[in-house]
Simulated assay, not measured.
Amino acid sequence: MTSEVLEIAGKSLILQRPGIAASTLRAWDAADELLLDEALKRITAEQRVLVIDDTFGALTIGLGEFAPVSIADSASLALSLKANAARNKALQTPPEPHSWLNPPDGPFDLVVMRIPRHAEYLAWLLRWVNAQLSENGCVLAGGMIKHLPERSVDVFSAAVVTESVLPARKKARVVVCRQGKATLEGWPATWKGYEQEGLPARVEAMPAVFSRERLDIGTRELLPLVKPAVKTLNSGARVLDLACGNGVLGLTALACRDDIALTFSDVSSQAVASVEHNLKHCGYLERAQLLHSDGVPKESGKYQLIILNPPFHEGGVVGDHIALRLFKEAAEHLAADGRVLMVGNRHLGYHRTLKRYFRSVQQRAASPRFVVFEAAL
């Protein structure tokens, strides 16, 4: 059993990861430990503290006595914070974290952030932070060395003033920064996208969104099956684009029919913001619902069609645990006469796991790397 106790500054914090992987993977890593150690050396009671992209609550709860404001792209942080705060009853329960759909206002004196795996998201974050940092504010940016993006040194130097790079510890690194002059105003990389046949506008996305500059190869396999599936639906049918990313699958469904109700759901707030952006540009905004959610909310009701290209990694962890949870939730929210269209990497063997939740599982398309399935109850 993996340890659930994080020892930091004389405190013992009980932290768990939610979901299937909870018993085998810790809810923090060495980068969290290094960030907490350095933050606690520098922080003072009167400072305003911001935590960015905390994973499972270690940073926010570890700095809880200083009442940090927390913002994360992922909707899963809110669930993790609530659960882990309940495990540490002596500590104050942190407030609901912000997302990029409702970012907090600065200024902040200390920013503690996880370095993302993608260079453009890091560049975006640092430019956003520059506008929120107090004049003498400090940024502590940390991550596991193997997960740092390529060109990260160049990204930091272009956006902020790097004061020091702390010695590595347990394969983790922390960079100490001061406010730079670069901001998001006029920065051309906030939105990138591509033209997609059949849609009236470019499909664009923000930096945290997967495959924002081109149609990813899994979606390319699934997309040709969306139009035929949508055309068979009754008027007023409800369709869910689950783990929607930039929303290209759901947008394609809306382009086919103007009498269906489309819901887009994604764990990433930048993905949800990107879908809203694309809906506006396509003229479909009034015909859709947007959910920033880690999966399908229980109150969502039933859908006649669910479209799914599930992620197969969570941070540095690769596996099928996310897909399994999404399959289960899709089955729970599928109408009796509904169906799920999904694509997955061939090596993950989804044809077996889908049968845990669906009576009918049929292969509809395949390539050397991906397989498309249709599932029904």
Rank of each mutant, 00 (worst) to 15 (best):
K11H: 13
I14K: 12
I20N: 12
L25H: 13
A27G: 11
D37I: 13
D37S: 15
A39E: 09
L40A: 05
K41N: 15
K41W: 09
E46P: 09
I52N: 03
I61K: 06
F66A: 12
A72G: 07
D73A: 04
L79P: 10
L79M: 12
L81V: 00
A83F: 07
N84P: 11
N84H: 01
N88K: 00
H98I: 09
W100Y: 10
P107I: 08
V111A: 03
R114E: 01
I115F: 01
L122S: 05
A123C: 13
L125I: 09
E135I: 11
N136W: 13
I145D: 02
K170N: 07
K171S: 09
V175P: 07
K181Q: 12
L199N: 07
V209H: 01
R214P: 08
D216W: 01
E221V: 15
L225K: 10
P228I: 01
A229K: 00
K231G: 01
G245V: 02
V248M: 05
L249H: 02
L254Y: 08
A255H: 03
A261M: 14
A261E: 14
L262M: 15
L279R: 02
H281R: 15
E286W: 04
P297C: 02
E299L: 09
Q304T: 06
L305S: 00
L308G: 04
P310M: 00
L324V: 15
R325S: 13
L326W: 03
F327Q: 03
E332C: 11
E332M: 11
D337P: 06
R346N: 07
G349V: 02
T353F: 06
K355L: 00
R356H: 12
F358S: 06
A365T: 02
F373L: 03
E374Y: 00
